[in-house]
Amino acid sequence: MGAGARPHGSHATWREVRRHLNEHRHELARAADRLYPDLPRVGSTHLLTRETWTPTRPVDLHRIALRWDDRPPAPAVTGREAEAGSTLPPGLPSYSQAMEALDKPRLFEDRTCYRLLDVDWPELGFARGRYFDGVDVGEAAAHEFAAARLLAEADLPLRRLVADPTDLRPRVALPAISMLTLRRDSCTGAMTFVLHWRDPARVAHGGGLYQVMPVGVFQPAEEAADFDLWKCVVREYAEEFLGRPEVYGDAFDYGAWPLYQELTEAREDGRLRRWCSGWVWAPSPSPPRGDRDRGGDLRHGLRRRHRVERGGTRHRREGHPVRRRLSKPVRPPRADAGGRRGRPRTRLEAPPYPRLAAVNRVSTQPGPVADGADRLP
């Protein structure tokens, strides 16, 4: 094991670096961006992408085809290489095990996830993966960079092993879907959307930053056969806007679920519209959009519980809100919620999680949405 890959000298030092990472993710992400001067960016943002990840025009979420691969290539980088040693405390062989032992978030389970293999619009290729596959490389690489800044260490052996963060082949990339939920008042033209703060004590990735909602890793519910982007989106709305527990059961029936039925009907009759405009990679939204007063009532609490889960923050924008920049440290996708030509865009999380962008239009009855313009706590 080289000098640049030696493990932390103590558990206390590892915790100190982990705390620094969670407290300074925004600044660290901007600094890490400078490591990739030759990779394409999305517009004027720091989001990394590839030309093939961006379709010529937004794609209806329902038209995206998902392809399954039962025999995917094994990842070349797993986070258990000698180069990852600098990210690990003594006696713990992987970053997920280090988090489990020394800094376990409230939500931290090694669930089945869908691993993104390739992007060929409108088709996406997937295989089976595990949540800790992403943690062991992605969070470890972030920890390595934070340690280099905090402890004045120059070498980044794990990040150098990954090389191009937009290359999906070397390691497991676990896609996540971020939905920027827009509500438009057709009488005043005011547009509102919701942000929530990611509590480092509750989440494994992106702690300490603001984020659109809902958002969630693309994964099945309880190993059920629901390899479907729309089902994942509806589950995230239920969990984050309504506080529904993340327990469904293998025999869960989407067709008999009132919220799923109503949102699907709204999608089919045009009251709810959603598009995807591409994949990106962040060194870390996609919006449903809707008229507040078109008469359709999503009766399951989307309007009543607008302040939302996990310390959620409501945020209001007037006029053309998505084209304006937030002044607070949000995760990179949120810093440019409007995307190029005013379109929301998805981003891939910094080595490890991809983001899928969609734009939805939702109809709800009039009611208080968010208070205060340009304010975040």
Results as ranks from 00 to 15, higher is better:
285 P>F: 11
289 R>V: 03
238 A>N: 06
272 L>I: 07
243 G>I: 11
295 G>Y: 06
262 E>I: 02
267 R>Y: 09
271 R>S: 09
251 A>L: 13
227 F>T: 05
227 F>A: 10
231 K>R: 15
227 F>I: 09
280 V>T: 14
255 G>D: 12
283 P>M: 13
276 C>F: 01
222 E>A: 15
266 A>P: 00
230 W>H: 06
281 W>F: 15
268 E>L: 13
237 Y>F: 15
290 G>F: 09
271 R>D: 07
249 G>S: 10
292 R>H: 10
260 Y>C: 01
275 W>E: 02
274 R>Q: 05
261 Q>I: 03
228 D>T: 10
280 V>P: 07
296 G>P: 01
245 P>R: 08
272 L>E: 00
290 G>C: 06
260 Y>G: 01
295 G>D: 06
245 P>M: 09
241 F>R: 05
249 G>A: 10
223 E>I: 11
292 R>S: 14
274 R>H: 05
227 F>S: 09
226 D>F: 14
258 P>D: 04
292 R>N: 09
254 Y>V: 00
275 W>L: 05
277 S>I: 00
283 P>I: 11
262 E>S: 10
269 D>F: 10
256 A>E: 07
282 A>N: 14
263 L>N: 00
252 F>A: 07
273 R>S: 09
247 V>Q: 14
241 F>I: 02
277 S>G: 14
258 P>M: 07
281 W>T: 07
296 G>K: 09
248 Y>K: 06
277 S>Y: 03
281 W>Q: 14
234 V>R: 08
286 S>T: 13
286 S>A: 14
245 P>V: 08
266 A>F: 04
223 E>K: 14
269 D>E: 13
232 C>Y: 03
266 A>E: 02
286 S>W: 05
274 R>W: 02
240 E>F: 08
224 A>L: 15
261 Q>P: 01
249 G>K: 11
296 G>F: 12
248 Y>L: 10
264 T>K: 03
241 F>C: 08
234 V>H: 10
243 G>Y: 11
252 F>G: 06
261 Q>M: 04
276 C>M: 06
271 R>P: 00
279 W>S: 00
232 C>M: 14
